[in-house]
Design a protein around this nucleic acid. Structure first.
Lengths: 114, 114
DNA sequence: GTCATGTGCAACCCTGGGGTTGCTCTAGTG
DNA sequence: CACTAGAGCAACCCCAGGGTTGCACATGAC
């Protein structure tokens, strides 16, 4: 069941790996909704750069945009973040069990009944 | 208390954003321990590339290496992943509460007592 | 001792993507 | 209507970092 989620997780991780994008999400969490132009004013980058980042974030599902008159307002989507967190947690669990198996085998009595 | 954790989270996210590194972690979870040379044989990249990735992963605390004779054996550290997952979950929660506040304000009666 | 295997370091190449500028187009405002 | 503020597009710059090759160094095997 986690197979299709892998790609989604990946895109979220890639999106979150960028400091500027993290900042953007932070700003959005603060303001609720904001346009690219507005967000750009709070950052040391151009509106265009912000737009690109928002595109990436949108691709990862971390953000949605809605048109309001002549501007586009974006807002954060915490659910996706939650899902990503769950994905990572699941991964961690999977690793742990795999490593546990290995450890068990290593500590098992030598005479293995092959 | 989550302030210093932010940097750690960032390094983990950056580390995990790389497909090859994800694969490396997967391999390590499978084998328990492995050297860079061994890991490189299972991937379409050079040992040097693997070494670089392992360095990054080590920097993020996702992996540890121990010297064993003339080779260095690495193994995954699921705990760090778990911590990262928690970090993301906390972030998500923070966003949600902030957005909830904003929404509440938006729906509040117009006559704000400024 | 010699040989083989594996690590460590350094220089280098090259693509991806973060960032910019410049322009056009659209939609509200006077 | 003319004017303005914001979105959208495209070309371009630049560098971080993923990947490579080549060689020197260390350690176990013979």
């Amino acid at each position: 069941m986690s197979r299709p989620a892998a790609a989604a997780l990946d895109s979220v991780l890639v999106a979150l790996a960028e400091p500027t994008r993290r900042q953007l999400l932070d700003l959005l969490a603060d303001r609720g909704e904001a346009s690219a132009s507005t967000l750009a004013q709070a950052l040391p980058v151009t509106r265009q750069a912000v737009v690109k980042h928002l595109t990436v974030l949108d691709g990862a599902g971390l953000v949605t945009g809605r048109r309001a008159g002549r501007e586009v307002l974006y807002r954060a989507r915490p659910e996706r973040l939650t899902e990503a967190a769950r994905g990572l947690a699941d991964l961690a669990t999977a690793w742990e069990s795999r490593l546990a198996v290995i450890k068990a085998l290593a500590e098992a009595p030598e005479g293995d009944p092959s």
